[in-house]
Amino acid sequence: MLAKKLIATVMQSVMMRTHAYFEGEFNIELTEQRCTHGQFEDMILLDTTAVIHVGGTINLLIAFGFESSLLNVIYEKMTEELEIELHEIGIYRDAAASDVINTIVGHCTIDLLHIDKNGVTITPPTILDCNHAKKASHIKNAMFYTVNLNTALGKMNISLVAQPEMLENNFNE
């Protein structure tokens, strides 16, 4: 599959699954704003960003960024009926961001199976530490493609991060 088509297919799947998940689980409506792209070191990170690596033929990072106000609401909804100690709140807020991306990207693997007959692999989610991530050699030269989203409760964004040869073709169209 051409890199351009691959990126479009992945983003389309992620967007569809994200809309469905946010509306179904949290009753939060997302509106898509402008798209941005560029060098990874110029990527604007929101307050909390969770990342998953999709392996195999696809081989890119998917990042979900959340403004604190939105993540707080997601955290509250995901942990209602659970007893969380005061000192655990930070861990559980990060876990909420991780669970959102894990569920959505996990569902995307169903849509993306035709791209990689050997199966689409995903890593466990991690919370991006921008200072470390931007120095990491394997993504130092990477490029990003971001869809910015608005909700009534705050902003979020979804980014695909990949090596330049995968994304440059998209930007130059």
């Binding site: 998940y21 569920t103 959505i104 569902h107 693997t109 169903i110 199976l113 199966g119």
Partner: peptide, 25 residues
């Protein structure tokens, strides 16, 4: 109990010996 919905993954889990498979959420 997983978010991984690929059919191949379900089959791998059942082959490994799992007795059931539920998709998150």
């Amino acid at each position: 109990i997983t978010s991984h919905g690929q059919e191949s993954m379900v089959l791998d889990a059942l082959k490994a010996g799992a007795k059931g498979y539920i998709l998150k959420p």
